[in-house]
Design a protein around this nucleic acid. Structure first.
Length: 264
DNA sequence: GCAAAATGTCAAG
DNA sequence: TTGACCTTTTGCA
């Protein structure tokens, strides 16, 4: 279910509970038979890059988790909740536990494999100090729509369908505009906006991208139906201009945009 | 009770 | 470009 912000949040929370400690690892539904290799070892640290998590148990023992579209974690203090559903992985100590369900990949990586993963990922806006230059250069060369490039993890790591839609709305750029027609100043502002929005999304579990001045209810708590400008708002009026939000498939995922505010 | 959809990625054709 | 895969939740019978 997650974009990069949630991955980084999981890394922080899981490290807080387990890093530097000997942990138990098991797989109640048998979906991760290698759990026993890790059981009883010390978890050194938890890394997050883009949408990937690496639980580092020492060289060549890196538990790689990619949640894909459906994977999710739950975390809590002992005792365990009752086992239900397809519980693939648990990590726990005497006091804390996490549970993992779903997900595209749960497997043990060598150091070399982890490094080759890092090599094929673009810069991650959630890693402080990251230089976006390589991403800008790739985008400037390509005819591919910017809406597809922002989701391409080898261009920029961590952006998913919600942030793609909302970043492009906030930049007033149509998702079908070719990458090479997005100027450098616009790319820079999208990158800075990604750092800001996704950074807020690490702390806040809601994806709020609207400015208060654009919300129909400008004060009070943000209403659920006013959190975002375009994502899953097709057929509804744009908060800024009133035009109906459109949607279409783009690179295998549904893109959303305002045909008036966002220019091709 | 069942179909459909969902914040993702990869491989086959 | 399409299908396959992982699982839960929602909406409609």
């Amino acid at each position: 279910m997650p974009e990069g912000n949630e991955i980084h949040r999981f890394a922080q929370q899981h490290a807080a509970a387990f890093a530097g400690k000997r942990v138990h690892v098991d797989s109640p539904n048998g979906g991760f038979p290698d759990a026993e290799i890790l059981d009883g070892r010390k978890l050194l640290r938890v890394d997050a890059v883009g949408k990937h998590l690496g639980y580092n148990f020492g060289r060549d023992l890196i538990l790689h988790v990619h949640l894909g579209m459906y994977g999710d974690f739950h975390q809590g203090e002992m005792p365990f909740p009752s086992v239900k559903g397809a519980l693939r992985l648990r990590i726990y100590t005497r006091t804390d536990w996490i549970e993992l369900r779903g997900g595209t990949d749960t497997s043990i990586f060598t150091q070399a494999k982890w490094e080759s993963l890092l090599r094929r990922l673009g810069p991650d806006p959630l890693i402080p100090g990251t230089d976006p230059k390589l991403a800008f250069e790739k985008i400037a060369k390509r005819n591919t729509p910017i809406g597809a490039l922002l989701m391409d993890q080898s261009v920029i790591a961590g952006i998913g369908n919600i942030y793609r839609a909302e970043l492009l709305y906030r930049a007033r750029i149509h998702p079908l505009r070719p990458g090479k027609d997005v100027d450098q100043a616009a790319l820079k502002s999208i990158w800075n906006d990604a750092k800001k929005l996704m950074g807020a999304g690490v702390k806040d579990t809601r994806y709020v991208t609207t400015l208060a001045k654009n919300r129909p209810h400008k004060s009070g708590p943000v209403r659920e139906d006013e959190e975002r400008y375009v994502y899953r708002r097709h057929g509804k009026p744009c908060f800024v201009c009133g035009t109906k939000i459109e949607r279409a498939d783009l690179a295998g995922r549904t893109a959303y945009w305002c045909p008036t505010c966002q220019k091709k």
